[in-house]
Design a protein around this nucleic acid. Structure first.
Length: 374
DNA sequence: AATCAGGACAACCGCTATCGT
DNA sequence: AACGATAGCGGTTGTCCTGAT
């Protein structure tokens, strides 16, 4: 019943667009837990650990990109002086920044400055009282509170073993994060045709299954139900057909209006290989305007995209849409998938693992089995 | 133009904590 | 309580880029 991925050599190195697409899609189904299961079910030849890292540090929605702001720089310095190399803890105080990002930042920028400061040569970014002006006072108050009561401050992220996902949801909302509920709602409210499923930020809703042409339908109230992905009427182009035989096509904010009001060219990718000025966010443009845009990795990637044979590092879209359709080359011969998603959260339409009740699993009888034909 | 040093950052590795059985 | 599986964390490495020489 569960699609099996044969034991193949584990891939390492930079992630490809296709891999990202697959990962985002399956995280949307399973939630950002059970990384081993995601790695297996997705067909990615990656370890669960690698999948988690990719998601947490790169694909997760809401991540900030670009240079650290002076406020963030100051906060990093302040918190590092307070907590040392507790990167994840520091990252919780900088919404949108990952521990990896902060760690890298510290290694390159801040550590050097701190060393300079120790030698008394750096007038800026001091951890002394002079730097406090750079900081949001409330952030320092929060940090102080966490000092006093380390476990009271929750982790920014989903599925923490130290608190319920719902608590973290609230905490993320409080700190300007990106509650999954909000993301899903946004995507659910967007246009959705019968042949489109949304990966990454949204899992199928019962309505999706009711409208499906498959053999089973999902019942929003029942404990054990199943469904099948709707089979599209109109073939679509298989842009990046993953190894798991899902026709997928990532669509992202390239469909939105650019800051000057003009539309991007249709079909344009936001991935690094196609990055151009039109792909810049307003923040990017600001960076460009202050003469530092050339330091941004996205531009470097764009400049060198043609030279990279594989594993091109690329910018993930802010939002993902996966399309499953019969035009996929493997459509005729591929297998029937089934993925188990627990649905034990009482009185909600949310998958239980998002409520902190239980991670998704295929082992429990009360699981909802979401299946589709590809 | 070529070379080199250092910055930037993605990704991996190893260890530890936590959870489920 | 013990054990295995999994997630999370911090350290490190590898690669590519820019700017200086």
């Amino acid at each position: 019943m569960v699609m099996m991925v044969t034991e193949e050599e584990t891939r390492k190195g930079p992630w490809t667009e296709q891999e990202d697409t697959q990962l985002v899609f399956f995280v949307g189904l399973f939630g950002d837990r059970r990384w081993d299961a995601i790695a297996r079910a997705s067909g990615l030849q990656r370890t669960g650990k690698s999948c988690r890292l990719r998601w947490v540090n790169y694909l997760r929605p809401g991540l900030k990109r670009g240079r650290m702001t002076p406020q963030e720089e100051g906060l990093i310095l302040e918190l590092h002086s307070r907590w040392g190399n507790r990167w994840s803890r520091i990252a919780r105080k900088l919404p949108g920044r990952t521990d990896n990002e902060i760690k890298n930042y510290w290694r390159t920028h801040t550590r050097k400055k701190a060393q300079d400061r120790k030698r008394g040569s750096s007038p800026e970014l001091s951890t002394s009282s002079s730097s406090s002006s750079l900081l949001d006072e409330s952030q320092l108050v929060d940090a102080a509170a966490e000092d006093a009561e380390p476990h009271a401050a929750g982790r920014v992220g989903f599925g923490s073993p130290r608190g319920t996902a719902w608590e973290e949801h609230e905490q993320m909302a409080a700190c300007g994060g990106f509650p999954m509920e909000q993301i899903w709602n946004e995507i659910a409210s967007s246009e959705m045709s019968g042949l489109t499923c949304y990966g990454g930020n949204r899992r199928p809703t019962p309505n999706d299954w009711h409208s499906a042409s498959g053999d089973r339908q999902l019942d929003s109230g029942g404990p054990v139900v199943g469904g099948r992905w709707p089979v599209p009427d109109t073939p679509t182009v298989c842009a990046r057909c993953p190894a798991v035989n899902t026709q997928c096509q990532s669509v992202s904010n390239d469909q939105r209006s650019s800051p000057d009001g003009s539309q991007r060219p249709p079909g344009r990718s936001t991935f690094g290989t196609h990055l151009g000025d039109q792909d810049l966010t307003p923040d990017d443009r600001q960076l460009a305007s202050d003469g530092r845009a050339d330091r941004r990795p996205l531009d470097r990637r764009a400049l060198n995209a043609d030279r990279r044979p594989s594993g091109v590092r690329h910018r993930p879209p802010d939002r993902w849409v996966l399309t499953i359709g019969p035009s996929c080359a493997n459509y005729q011969t591929s297998n029937h998938w089934e993925l188990g998603i627990d649905r034990q959260a009482p009185n909600t339409g949310r998958a239980s693992h998002l409520m902190g009740h239980r991670p998704p699993t295929v082992r429990h009888k009360e699981s909802v089995f979401v299946s589709w034909i590809v």
